[in-house]
Design a protein around this nucleic acid. Structure first.
Lengths: 111, 111
DNA sequence: TTTACTTATCGTATAAATACGATATACGTT
DNA sequence: AACGTATATCGTATTTATACGATAAGTAAA
């Protein structure tokens, strides 16, 4: 964006958009799924799963960490990643509340 | 992105990411909410609701139209917009399936 | 027809996202 | 200590997203 106008929107809408942004790339969707289903969740495993360079995967992981969805712990020479389910569920609730509110309004729609 | 790598990911992950991309800006979240709750949904009303220029709002509307979430009909000198609820519900189901599958995997997590 | 109004699109500028290679860092191993 | 491995970060290039003003195109009204 030319100038960041996001701060002029409502808090709820910004939070929802932030969560959506985290899911707005198939690599991050795939990373979250792999983190959820694997016991071993170090970076190297994720790199093998994805058609991306190691540095790019690391960058996507950082994006997920920045929003709080993922936690990283140092495990010897490697890093172990996992989903912060408390954060995940909070965002899931945001999204669920939003979509159900949308559905409630549906019958009043003009088209 | 430098080169578009999205076609190498799984269809489901791409679809989910596309929906997330549509919600990845508070303006579009706000637009969808306004479209759901107002009977009059022409562009001008949306512009008044948002801290953005008319052309920018039109651009966001185009993004929502491109993914199919919103339909536009010409109504005299103005355009009337509405949500395509069939598409909305389809994406909602995608997202719901994904999050519930994530939650199922939760107990097997390593952290 | 002329005027006023609404909206889409064009042109443009800037910021953010995406991707990779190279490298620094940190740890374990020999 | 020296080496190998794993990962984060830096630098950089490219694409996409975001934003606005200006304008075109279309409709209604005068």
């Amino acid at each position: 964006m030319a100038l960041a106008r996001t701060e002029e929107f409502k808090r709820k809408e910004i939070d929802l958009a932030d969560f959506a942004k985290a899911l707005a790339h198939p690599a991050r969707v795939a990373i979250l799924k792999t983190l959820a289903e694997k016991k071993e969740c170090n970076c190297g495993d994720l790199v093998l799963d994805l058609p991306l360079a190691q540095s790019t995967v690391s960058q996507h992981l950082k994006a997920l960490k920045d929003i709080g969805l993922v936690q990283g712990t140092i495990d010897g020479p490697r890093s172990r990643y996992c989903i912060d389910w408390k954060v995940f569920e909070r965002y899931q609730r945001y999204l669920g509340d939003w979509t159900s509110k949308m559905m409630e309004l549906k019958q009043d729609n003009c088209c």
